[in-house]
Simulated scan of single mutants.
Amino acid sequence: MESYLSSVIKQFQYYKQLGDKTFEQLSFEDLQNDISKDANSIAIITKHLAGNMLSRWTNFLSEDGEKDWRRRDLEFIDTYTSREELVMHWEKGWQCLFDAIASLHVTDLNKIIYIRNQGHTVLEAINRQLAHYAYHVGQIVFLGKVLRGADWQSLSIPKGGSTTYNDEKFSKEKKRQHFTDDL
């Protein structure tokens, strides 16, 4: 279970990094672009993710993950006035998550915590949030790719690059490592 905690931190870091690398490729106007009626812009998805993280991970072991101070519906209204404000909120959410997970011990993983009064083991709650954040970061990356078009810099193996990538990987000795260690 120690390896679970270190692995899940790396997974969360990976998804944060995908978001960070997407933001780097986009202007503030791109981040605010809701590409169609009723679509969420990257700014809105970011606001929702940060709001969720702050709610879920603040006092993670001792309070319900849906805080009474959270205003979820307002997360879907873009109020950011600058790229810096958006990134600061994104960073604040992730820092709350990483601080909470770093404080956990293996003995905490089977404890019960609540999200909207639904009991979860800590392990289940972490997995729930990992899947939720991966879903939304995937949306962020996809929108970034759509907005940048041919100027998009791939965040994974580029189209047509699988053979080169695999040749490089298979040219090395087998070893135990997390897939994000080379990123």
Score class of each variant (00 low, 15 high):
Gly51Met: 03
Gln25His: 14
Phe179Ser: 02
Leu104Arg: 02
Thr164Pro: 02
Cys96Tyr: 00
His89Leu: 12
Ala102Thr: 08
Leu49Gln: 01
Val122Ser: 01
Leu130His: 04
Ala131Tyr: 08
Arg72Lys: 11
Ala150Leu: 12
Gln25Val: 13
Arg116His: 02
Ala43Ser: 15
Ala50Ile: 04
Val106Asp: 06
Arg72Ser: 03
Phe179Gly: 01
Ser7Phe: 10
His132Glu: 10
Lys10Pro: 00
Val141Tyr: 07
Gly119Lys: 04
Asp99Tyr: 09
Tyr165Phe: 15
Leu31Gln: 11
Leu61Glu: 09
Lys92Arg: 14
Val106Ser: 04
Glu29Phe: 09
Leu147Pro: 02
Ala100Thr: 05
Ala125Lys: 03
Gln95Ile: 11
Asp64Gln: 02
Gly138Val: 05
Asn166Glu: 10
Gly144Gln: 11
Ser3Val: 13
Asp108Thr: 05
Gly119Phe: 07
Gln95Arg: 14
Ile42Met: 11
Leu155Tyr: 04
Asn40Met: 11
Asp30Gln: 10
Arg56Ile: 02
Asp181Leu: 05
Ser162Asn: 12
Val137Glu: 02
Lys92Val: 03
Lys92Phe: 09
Leu147His: 00
His89Pro: 05
Leu130Cys: 03
Thr164Asp: 09
Leu147Asp: 00
Val106Ala: 05
Lys21His: 14
Thr121Asp: 03
Ile157Cys: 12
Asn117Gln: 10
Ser36Met: 12
Ser171Glu: 15
Glu173Lys: 08
Lys37Asn: 14
Lys159Glu: 14
Asp38Lys: 08
His136Gln: 08
Glu29Pro: 06
Asp108Pro: 05
Thr107Arg: 09
Ile35His: 14
Thr79Leu: 15
Asp64Pro: 00
Phe179Pro: 01
Gly149Trp: 10
Asp151Ala: 15
Ile35Ala: 08
Val137Cys: 03
Leu18Phe: 13
Asn110Trp: 10
Gln25Asn: 13
Thr107Lys: 11
Ser156Glu: 07
Phe23Ala: 03
Trp90Asn: 03
Lys169Asn: 05
Thr22Asp: 07
Glu63Ala: 09
Gly65Ala: 01
Asp182Val: 04
Ser82Asp: 13
Leu123Thr: 08
Leu61Asn: 05
Ser154Ala: 15
